[in-house]
Amino acid sequence: MRIGTAVVGRGPAARRMAEGLRRSGAYEVLSLLEGCPAGDGSELTERRWRSVLSRPDVDFVALCLPPADLLEPASAVLAANKAVLLDGLVPASLTEFDALSARQSADTPLGVMLPLRMLLDAGQWPVGSSPVTCGSLELSRFVPEASHDDPLWASTGRSWQEGAVVALLAPYLDLACQLLGEPVAIRLDGVERGTAAGSARFTSGAQLSIAVTINSVNPVQRLEVLDAERRFTLDGGTLRISDRSTTRTRKTPTMSELHMAVYHEMADALLAGRQPEKSAFALSRGLATAMTLLNPST
């Protein structure tokens, strides 16, 4: 039996998630609410939102909302004992992250759509975090100004360029946090121009250099982390994991396939009454810290 589902959000992100959930075969999308319950102001949106929360046939709600608008709707869904999936970005501050964490229960799944986590083998993550660990993150893509109305960028920066840079960085920063732990400092210069460089330092003393641009037609997605013993390299569609004796190289699944893996993991968690293993919201504290450091006014 498929899981009764509602998708809440604005713009193409919500429609893409609804279609992805349908294609997974694990969910029946019963409602697509295009609006923001936290700040839409529309009486119709409020009425439809209350209907989503009260429907006994809806057990799962996917929220495709800007970070600053996540706390209230996600808390309301959890209070209604329904599972929640947040699309890609965590709440805009550590305060909101901690508040939402406090409202979740062990048997009601709360997950995030950060599909690069699905590349990591649970219990066998390849790089330990230590003062001798270092790495580099290089990201490049072209984002036209016409894309700036994507609602998921709305509260990630003071300009559309900043929002686009942070949206591009977020999944890779999250992956770096899974490998290195929680950041304590991030310096990133030039974000307002759409081309930025800097570095991040983590609690262990590990260092990560960062270079990112949304102004290049040459796509690059490369994250490399290494310590005295091991090396982890994600370069486009190739993942290499090396130690002193072996190197394992494999092609990575497509982004669509990784999204499907998240949907299936969330479905398994909901049916088992537990938190998801890799896409768990609780594993997002590092990214929430990074978001706060990148936008200290939040």
Rank of each mutant, 00 (worst) to 15 (best):
M266D: 06
F60G: 07
P37N: 09
F281K: 01
N218I: 15
T238D: 10
T238A: 13
M266A: 10
S199R: 15
R222A: 14
S279V: 01
A106Y: 13
L226I: 05
L30Q: 14
E145C: 07
L180C: 00
S199Q: 12
V212S: 13
V184F: 00
P12Q: 06
C64D: 00
E19Y: 03
R230A: 15
E43L: 14
F142G: 01
G205V: 11
V262L: 06
R23S: 14
T195P: 02
W125R: 15
R222Q: 15
D59S: 13
M291N: 09
R50A: 15
L53N: 04
L119C: 07
P56V: 00
R55I: 01
T249C: 06
E182S: 02
E257V: 05
S136F: 13
R55K: 11
S51D: 14
T108S: 01
D121Q: 14
T133G: 09
A102M: 05
L32H: 06
D149H: 07
T254V: 06
L152E: 06
K82C: 07
S216H: 10
L294V: 03
W49L: 07
V61I: 09
R16G: 01
V220H: 14
S155R: 01
V165E: 00
V212A: 14
A154V: 08
P296E: 08
L89M: 09
L168W: 03
S105I: 04
G190C: 07
N81H: 10
G286L: 05
C177H: 07
T246S: 08
I186Q: 00
A176I: 02
A267E: 03
A282Y: 04
E138Q: 15
S245P: 12
V212D: 11
I210C: 07
V52E: 02
I214R: 06
P253D: 09
G20D: 00
R55G: 12
P73R: 03
Q104R: 10
T5C: 06
L110P: 05
T45G: 07
L63S: 03
A154H: 11
D189T: 09
M118E: 11
L139G: 11
T289L: 04
Y27H: 09
P131Q: 13
G273K: 08
G111Q: 10
R10E: 09
S256A: 13
L85C: 05
G128S: 13
D121H: 08
S42W: 05
R244D: 12
T156H: 04
D189A: 09
T292E: 10
A13V: 12
R158C: 04
A102W: 03
Y263V: 05
E19G: 12
L188Y: 00
